[in-house]
Each structure stands twice: as structure tokens, then as C-alpha cells.
């Protein structure tokens, strides 16, 4: 639980790690759009080559990329089976007794959806594998800044995220401590009906919430005492800057977008 705040970040010094977080966030969004643009397998071949390049150059072990798929494995299988049996087309095989049919377009479609989901999940996780949460928060703040004109409080959102990041380990510890303290006083969390067990949570939740309010109060006073007055004119310790890595990133984004569009138009595979 203590390492929760580094998230999925895998420290390193690869070219992808060195890219500016803003480039990576924009790239991830573009990547997502490209994935939904692809309408044939040739496009997926392009995406596959690209992902291969990202995985290799990020120097994050491949198994981490596949770990994320595990959580939705059942859902993916269900989707694949559903598409396999229920897509109309030329029947190739009929299941005995049940009478369900598999068609050629069913196989094609199920494979297509599986590829799409897998590439979507693997590709987007590269963002959080190579960028630490704090840097990503910075990047998000910069990217949201233009929207502050229409009322999106970019700085405030980033500040609240930073506060939350700061307090997650504290509360993880505190929850543990409260639980032990109440157990020592004879609280029973593990027996009885669901409602009874839920009621046993009150002695944990109330101190947790009261503690949260107290800490928020302390923090607000400390910030006010240091003359914090919001985002205007505020500078940050670490400045984000674009480098050569970002130029490569942008160039490759342009290349895949073009390649996918070409595949969509000319390939019938």
C-alpha cells in the first residue's frame, strides 16, 4: 500500500521517459483516436509495429504491458465469443446440439475487436509506465491552462490532485491504525450479517473523516500563512521543456496517422 503513490511508473531513462509529459498526453489522446479510425487489419499491422517500437524503446519489461489486460480478460473473452457467434455471414461451423453458428465474418469481426481492445489498452498504458504521477499532474495543468478562460480552474485542479497524492499514504496508514485501535477495543469487523458488518464500519469511517477534516484545516492554515493565493503569477520548481525526444514523438505521431489513413483507403484486407 505504501508504494501506491508511484502508481504504475517504472523509473528509467529511455527516450520515451525523457519526453515531455504534455507530448505524451497529447500523443496518447491521438493514439486513441487513431485506434478507433482503423477499419482493417493492415491498419492494425501498422499499430502493432508502432507498439513494438514503443515497448522496446521504453525499456519497460513486456510483462507489465500485459498485466493490465488481466483485469478485463473475462470481459474480452465474452465480447469475442459474442461477436463470434452473433455476427451474420457465411456459416463455417455449427455447434452441435446448441445450433449456434460461426460465420467467416464472425471470426473476422471477433479478431478485429480483440485486436482493437488489446492495442488500446497496451498502447495507452505506455503513458503511465514512463511518466511519474507528479510530472503527469504538471503536464495536465499546462494542457488545461487554455481552458481556464472558459472557467476550468486548471491550477486548482492540479493543486487538489497534488494534495490528494500527498495524503494517500498518510490515510492508508491512518486507516490501518484506526482499524487496529478499534479492534483492540473489541470491535468486530468480520462476523455477522452484511448490515451488521457495515455498521461496524462506522467506528472506522468517522475517525477517518474527522481526521481528514482536521488535516485539511491544518493544511489550509499552513498554506494561507505562506501567502498561497492561487495560480496567478505562480512559478514552479521544475519547468517543463520540449526536447529532441518530443520532435521524434511528434514525427512518429504524424507518420502513424498518415499510415493508418492510407491503409484505410487502399487496403481491403
Amino acid at each position: 500500500m505504501m508504494d501506491i503513490t508511484i502508481g504504475q511508473f517504472f523509473p528509467g531513462d529511455s527516450i520515451i521517459h525523457r519526453m515531455d509529459p504534455r507530448t505524451k498526453i497529447l500523443f496518447t489522446m491521438l493514439y486513441m483516436i487513431v485506434i478507433f479510425l482503423v477499419n482493417n487489419f493492415a491498419g492494425f499491422a501498422v499499430i502493432f509495429l508502432f507498439i513494438l517500437a514503443v515497448i522496446v524503446s521504453s525499456r519497460v519489461p513486456v510483462k507489465y504491458y500485459f498485466k493490465g489486460l488481466k483485469t478485463i480478460l473475462i470481459l474480452m473473452l465474452f465480447t469475442a465469443l459474442f461477436n463470434l457467434f452473433l455476427t451474420p455471414g457465411n456459416t463455417i461451423y455449427t455447434l452441435p446440439y446448441l445450433g449456434w453458428t460461426i460465420s467467416d465474418s464472425g471470426i473476422r469481426f471477433a479478431a478485429f475487436m480483440l485486436f482493437r481492445l488489446t492495442f488500446l489498452l497496451i498502447g495507452t498504458s505506455a503513458l503511465t509506465f514512463t511518466t511519474s504521477p507528479v510530472v503527469l499532474t504538471d503536464g495536465l495543468e499546462y494542457l488545461m491552462r487554455p481552458f481556464s478562460k472558459i472557467g476550468v480552474p486548471a491550477h486548482e485542479i492540479a493543486m487538489m490532485m497534488t494534495i490528494a497524492l500527498r495524503f494517500i499514504p498518510t490515510f492508508a496508514e491512518e486507516t490501518d491504525r484506526i482499524k487496529k485501535a478499534q479492534s483492540a477495543r473489541g470491535a468486530d469487523f468480520e462476523s455477522g450479517s452484511i448490515l451488521k458488518r457495515a455498521k461496524a464500519m462506522v467506528p472506522i469511517l468517522v475517525p477517518l473523516f474527522v481526521g481528514a477534516f482536521r488535516r485539511a484545516d491544518d493544511l489550509a492554515i499552513a498554506m494561507e500563512a505562506r501567502c498561497y493565493r492561487g495560480g496567478e503569477g505562480r512559478t514552479s520548481l521544475k519547468q517543463l521543456s520540449f526536447s529532441y525526444a518530443d520532435i521524434y514523438g511528434l514525427a512518429s505521431a504524424a507518420i502513424i496517422l498518415t499510415a493508418v489513413i492510407i491503409c484505410n483507403i487502399y487496403s481491403h484486407f
Binding site: L165, R215, A220, M223
Partner: peptide, 20 residues
């Protein structure tokens, strides 16, 4: 009624509780 800074800190802190 509390200051704007307090509203920010309490929202941030509560987000941490939801995260837990």
C-alpha cells in the same frame, strides 16, 4: 463557511480518502 483555500484542501484530502 471557510476560505477558498480550505475548500481546495478539503476536496483534495477527501479525494485521497476515496483513493484509499
Amino acid at each position: 463557511k471557510k476560505s477558498k483555500i480550505y475548500q481546495m484542501t478539503i476536496i483534495g484530502v477527501m479525494a485521497a480518502v476515496i483513493c484509499i
